[in-house]
């Protein structure tokens, strides 16, 4: 009973905030609503017992992706109001697509049947009495350590690529050098000149 109540609470906030992402006038508000939607999605995952997925959603999407969005929205001068003008015009078509997708989902889930021997094929069934974070952690760094390390290498290459293709070492740029600033003495900065009266330097 109380579970159902919380489910509807999170689900409704999720849908409403997702809607607000599209319609709010201020792009910063859109991103904030997106973050709210992510939080509610994470809450739904936790309710399903998939707490690892919930936390991943928070860390990856809220922590990194949404903050990146926020940067983009604030740093780029994009007229979002202009972009959103077409919303009403495209609403019928978009709505029709949405309805079709919804019907398809209903058909799929209405006739869904898991293969009877699917469970026997599981490569790594979750042990009883462990949270799924623990269960995953036990095999991720032992049985699947090879894949884990390979994925790390792929990310390393991606990082090298991003740096190689975008980083410019520009000459003649004045950078702050704190040791230099601290080491500066009065003698280095000030030069006293005797000025003859009426002559100038």
């Amino acid at each position: 009973m109380i579970e159902a109540a919380f489910f509807y609470l999170y689900a409704i906030i999720l849908v409403v905030s997702a809607f607000m992402v599209i319609v709010s006038r201020n792009p910063v508000h859109s991103v904030l609503f997106l973050i709210l939607a992510f939080f509610n999605g994470a809450a739904l995952f936790v309710m399903l017992g998939a707490e690892l997925l919930g936390m991943l959603l928070l860390i990856v999407y809220v922590g990194a992706v949404a903050v990146l969005f926020l940067f983009v929205v604030m740093m780029l001068d994009i007229d979002f109001a202009e972009m959103r003008k077409g919303l009403l015009k495209y609403l019928p078509v978009g709505g029709a697509v949405g309805v079709v997708v919804m019907l398809e989902l209903l058909i799929v889930f209405g006739s869904w049947a898991a293969a009877p021997d699917a469970a026997s094929h599981l490569g790594a069934p979750a042990p009883e009495g462990l949270t799924n974070t623990e269960a995953l952690g036990q095999i991720l760094y032992t049985k699947y350590v090879y894949f884990f390390q390979l994925a790390g290498l792929v990310l390393l290459v991606a990082m090298i690529g991003a740096i190689v293709l975008t980083l410019h070492h520009r000459e003649n740029v004045k950078r702050q050098n704190i040791p230099d600033q601290i080491a500066r003495t009065r003698e280095m900065a000030v030069e006293l000149k005797d000025v003859e009266p009426g002559q100038g330097i």
Partner: peptide, 23 residues
């Protein structure tokens, strides 16, 4: 299949960067 994909992707990502190395 997992090792196949990860190896392939490691190779391909490095090749994409190499193709664009004269940015």
């Amino acid at each position: 299949l997992i090792a196949l994909y990860l190896g392939l992707e490691l190779q391909s990502l490095a090749l994409y960067v190499l193709a664009a190395i004269r940015r």
